[in-house]
């Protein structure tokens, strides 16, 4: 399935969610820009968490190599799970900030 098909599917479900939110749930469309802004903040926070996770992971790997004299590969950090976990961290922190 090509890129355009995926984008088309996401556009359809996004439109569906927008219609449900405005027609059924009574949300105001003029609050959507605020929500998009907060989404961008969450993504930015996730990027910072990812950078921190990689930096800490790298420091641990090289520190272990130096102090133990044994080798462990840094490629263990090259895992998509770290990106998703960073996003989760960002979502938690962002939700916490909003709930204060």
């Amino acid at each position: 399935m090509g890129s355009l098909a995926l984008l088309g599917i996401v556009a359809l479900t996004s439109l569906g969610a927008y219609l449900v939110a405005t027609q059924r749930l009574g949300w105001h469309h003029d609050t959507l820009p605020t929500a998009l802004g907060e989404t961008l903040e969450c993504i930015g926070l996730a990027a910072i968490f990812l950078a921190c996770n990689l930096a800490v992971g790298g420091a641990l790997v090289f520190g272990f190599r130096i102090f133990s004299g044994r080798f462990i590969s840094v490629y263990g950090l090259n895992d998509i799970a770290l990106v998703l976990l960073s996003l989760l961290q960002a979502m938690v922190l962002h939700s916490w900030r909003r709930s204060r």
Binding site: S3, G37, L40, E41, I43, A46, A47, I48
Partner: peptide
């Protein structure tokens, strides 16, 4: 928070460019 939004926008654009081009 504006800095975070800018960073988020940059990440999103990079994701879109990397994935769909």
């Amino acid at each position: 928070m504006r800095g975070l939004r800018c960073l988020g926008l940059i990440v999103l654009l990079l994701f879109a460019i990397a994935t769909f081009t």
